[in-house]
């Protein structure tokens, strides 16, 4: 009886996780800026870890826990590396097509967002030249 409840709830959780996965992928595809995509990818790693955990419950292979932990480690390192990359690239994304998407999501907001940013002293132009390619 309880086994039946468990297997049904694992199924339900798989479906729910699949929905979460699709929503997050939508954000990865849409994501106006690189940082948005990185956040979504981080979240994606978390969801995949959830999938692995569910598979571990279904199959009974507890070795999957180790896989989940190492995936978490890889995801964490990837996010850290992306953060360093964003920092070193030093250029905010151009919110051109993004403005439309954001205006649809949050009507009264994000109209006059522009790429005017504070830059660190002398490094500005060089960084911009590299990023502008």
């Amino acid at each position: 009886m309880t086994g039946l409840i468990l297997s049904w709830s694992v199924w339900a959780a798989l479906v729910v996780l699949a929905m979460a996965f699709l929503l997050t992928v939508w954000r990865v595809v849409k994501g106006p800026t690189l940082a948005d995509r990185v956040v979504a990818l981080d979240m994606l790693t978390g969801i995949v870890i959830g999938f692995i955990a569910l598979i571990a419950i279904r199959t009974g292979f507890t070795l999957y826990i180790d896989i989940a932990i190492s995936l978490g480690l890889v995801g964490f390192l990837a996010t850290v590396a992306f953060a360093r990359f964003i920092l070193s690239r030093g250029r905010p994304a151009r919110p051109k097509p993004a403005e439309l998407a954001e205006a649809l999501l949050a009507p009264a907001a994000t109209r006059k967002k522009k790429t005017d940013t504070k830059r660190k002293g002398g490094t500005g132009p060089a960084v911009r030249r590299k990023g502008g390619k």
């Binding site: 468990l6 709830s9 694992v10 339900a12 959780a13 798989l14 729910v16 996780l17 929905m19 979460a20 996965f21 929503l23 997050t24 954000r27 979240m43 978390g46 969801i47 959830g50 955990a53 569910l54 419950i57």
Partner: peptide, 13 residues
């Protein structure tokens, strides 16, 4: 399992 999946969905939303 159910609450974990629900939280993941909420985070995605």
């Amino acid at each position: 399992v159910l609450s974990g999946a629900a939280f993941a969905l909420v985070a995605a939303i």
